[in-house]
């Protein structure tokens, strides 16, 4: 039996007396598109940072494909990539150079990196800006580049932290289509403030509030749980209530 993509038990991160993430337990299956929703400061980004090995948990365990995140070496890191909340690229490198850089950092040779970059630029409509320095792109294009840099390494698990923030409606829909195409080919964990985005894309949705997971299920299950008929009302109800969990 395959290991789940993510297995988290009692994951906690404290900053002094404040718990940014408080006893989070969660399983994300291989190939699943999982959305993590929550208000600002709910602990979504801290959770992602712990799952990427960027932040040490205060307590609890996090496994990615059966391997402890904290003990993982280069091979384990090669399986995972992320697109941080802020656009993350090398400003004076061109779009193509940024993409090839990421591919090569993750082990691709020069020729493979070039091919991967060409393919991804085509899929994310970046080809005509291939030679432009990243710092000179518009905010939306920078966002798209940042996401492309996460996808170019063909990770088994990718974290997309607010991937569509700052994208116009057309670019957002294009990215949705890209994510739909990737569904099943890689495990995707995305955080978003756009509730309709989570509903449209995610297999399951986890709702975080004050560092804890307050609800977990499909969009329909969450609506049923909160006795509402739209995801926005469900979200408001579930971030104001005590823990409610729909087991899969």
């Amino acid at each position: 039996m395959n290991s789940p993509a993510i297995e988290v038990r009692g994951l906690t991160k404290r900053y002094g007396a404040r718990a940014a993430v408080d006893g989070l337990s969660l399983t994300v299956e291989d190939g699943e598109l999982f959305a993590l929703l929550g208000l600002n400061g709910a602990g979504k980004t801290t959770t992602i940072k712990m799952l990427c090995g960027l932040t040490e948990p205060t307590d609890g365990a996090a496994l990615v494909y059966g391997q402890s995140v904290q003990d993982g070496g280069a091979e384990e890191r090669r399986m995972v990539n992320l697109s941080p909340q802020e656009s993350a690229f090398a400003g004076k490198l061109t779009v193509r150079e940024n993409l090839e850089l990421m591919a090569r950092v993750y082990g691709a040779d020069r020729a493979a990196a070039r091919d991967l970059a060409s393919d991804l630029m085509s899929r994310l409509s970046l080809t005509d800006r291939a030679g432009d320095q990243a710092r000179k792109l518009s905010g939306g294009l920078q966002r798209r580049l940042s996401i492309a840099m996460a996808l170019i390494t063909e990770p088994r698990l990718v974290f997309l932290d607010e991937p569509t923030l700052g994208l116009d409606i057309r670019a957002r829909r294009e990215l949705w289509n890209t994510l739909r195409e990737l569904k099943g080919k890689m495990t995707i964990v995305l955080t978003t403030h756009y509730l309709e985005e989570a509903e449209a894309l995610a297999d399951r949705i986890g709702i975080m509030h004050d560092g804890a997971l307050t609800a977990l299920g499909t969009a329909d299950e969450l609506k049923a749980l909160s006795r509402t008929d739209n995801i926005e009302d469900a979200f408001l109800a579930l971030t104001g209530a005590d823990e409610m969990e729909v087991e899969r």
């Binding site: 090995g53 990421m102 950092v105």
Partner: peptide, 14 residues
């Protein structure tokens, strides 16, 4: 200052 280093810290670079 940028999130670029965060991205690299999550990569296989040592």
């Amino acid at each position: 200052k940028s999130a670029f280093l965060m991205r690299l810290f999550a990569s296989p670079l040592t």
